[in-house]
């Protein structure tokens, strides 16, 4: 076990906020313990010498996967009615949401 906890309640409250999740106090306690367990387990990675090892974002060596700039015939682009029908709230063909408050970043 590390001397210092790898993350505390405040850290968990912060990430919950970033992830748009609301936690009760009890949940905050429980999640803090569980996440700390996972990070403690992951402490085994700290001993590894990873100097000069490139990070791997994708297991395939593919590059330059491109599509032609052409509209696709068929139904996939023609989903308007289905999508608007399934939406939680719609007005004038647009998705309706409560006021957004701030500007986009």
């Amino acid at each position: 076990m590390p001397e210092k906890p790898r993350l505390n309640r405040e850290d968990v409250a912060h990430v919950a906020d970033l992830a748009r999740l609301a936690l009760t106090d009890d949940e905050l306690d429980a999640f803090t313990g569980q996440l700390a367990d996972v990070l403690d387990h992951a402490a085994d990675l700290e001993a590894l010498d990873l100097d000069g090892v490139p990070p791997m974002a994708n297991p395939l060596p593919l590059v330059n996967v491109l599509r032609l700039d052409e509209p696709e015939p068929g139904t996939r682009a023609d989903i308007r009615a289905e999508v608007l029908d399934a939406a939680p709230s719609v007005e004038d063909g647009r998705f309706r949401v409560p006021p957004v408050l701030g500007e986009a970043p």
Binding site: L39, L45, E46, L48, L50, V53, P55, M56, P59
Partner: peptide, 11 residues
């Protein structure tokens, strides 16, 4: 965390 794990993936 994430960066390190991606290197482990390479290993």
């Amino acid at each position: 965390y994430y960066g390190r794990s991606q290197k482990v993936r390479t290993l």
